[in-house]
């Protein structure tokens, strides 16, 4: 039963991350996703400190605000100070992440957060961390509810905004000509990324979220040119990665989140090699 809960939690992280990641890599914003996943840390710590518990609503709120702030700061340094984009991203997220780590040390002893859990989460504790109602009924693992909610919200966001997201990603000029606000959807997408990052924070840690955001979509991107198929493959990869990752971690007795990103990397490696070999063969045939 433990295995089931952990794999379910992993899939519930991997699928929404992957779906949002499809947009990120096509918009050439993969590193902004990386930046957000680091930069939400101070938001989480402050929310943690203010609410005094792992109460999900304030954590999602705190990190959501920081995520939007990060995007805004990067944009601001880039346009107002004319700092090159890569430096704007690099300076902003390391600064906020350092702030988060310092805050953890300041509140050490007052909050139940440590640096390691920031890095690779505690997905192994998912089955133990139960949601127990006031009347004492056991409702099952708490993280499953949080990630289930995040999953649904992200799914609804993509289903409702599919057309707008699609257009602003592939043809921003046409989108704004037809009256779709490119900036609004940009910030909505960034908000969704921060929201998912926080939800995933407890289970896989702030940094390994990046593996789920980027690796499955990049793999799917090599396999198809059809955007809908790309999202479908990404979602399937999320399931496979969670499943294999869990058993790899059990076998090696190591971090589950780490093992999941290793599996993701392996799958990408295989697909990439096939892609390289495959793109060479027809060329040889023609010659």
């Amino acid at each position: 039963m433990d295995a089931f809960w952990i794999i379910l939690a992993g899939s519930l992280v991997a699928i929404p991350c992957g779906l949002l990641g499809c947009y990120l890599i096509l918009r050439k914003m993969a590193m902004i996703g990386d930046a957000i996943s680091h930069a939400v840390l101070p938001g989480i710590v402050i929310a943690f400190f203010v609410s005094g518990s792992r109460e999900p609503v304030s954590m999602l709120l705190g990190a959501g605000i920081l995520g939007i702030l990060t995007t805004f700061l990067i944009e601001f340094f880039h346009t107002k100070a004319r700092l090159q984009t890569d430096a704007a991203i690099g300076v902003t997220f390391t600064w906020l992440f350092a702030l988060g780590v310092i805050l953890i040390s300041v509140f050490a002893g007052q909050v139940d957060l440590d640096q390691d859990c920031v890095l690779y989460g505690e997905i192994a504790y998912v089955p133990i961390d139960l949601w127990i109602t006031d009347s004492g009924r056991i409702m099952g693992p708490r993280v499953i509810y949080i990630m289930g909610m995040v999953f649904l919200v992200v799914l609804c966001f993509i289903l409702i905004g599919y057309k707008e997201l699609f257009l602003t990603t592939f043809d921003p000029a046409f989108a704004s000509a037809t009256g779709i606000s490119v900036a609004l959807w940009h910030y909505l997408l960034m908000g969704a990324v921060s929201f998912t990052t926080v939800g995933a924070f407890e289970s896989v840690g702030a940094i390994l979220v990046v593996a789920f955001l980027i690796v499955p979509p990049a793999t799917a991107y090599l396999l198809t040119e059809d955007f809908k198929k790309m999202m479908l493959i990404t979602a399937l990869l999320g399931l496979v990665i969670s499943f294999c990752g869990y058993y790899l971690a059990v076998w090696l007795d190591g971090s589950i989140a780490g093992a999941m990103s290793v599996v993701a990397g392996l799958i990408f490696g295989v697909v990439f090699l096939l892609h390289v070999v495959g793109s060479r063969l027809p060329a040889a045939g023609r010659a």
Binding site: I207, L252, G258, V262, G265
Partner: peptide, 9 residues
């Protein structure tokens, strides 16, 4: 992320 994941594992 993949290298970091390998490192963490």
């Amino acid at each position: 992320s993949v290298f970091f994941g390998i490192g963490i594992l």
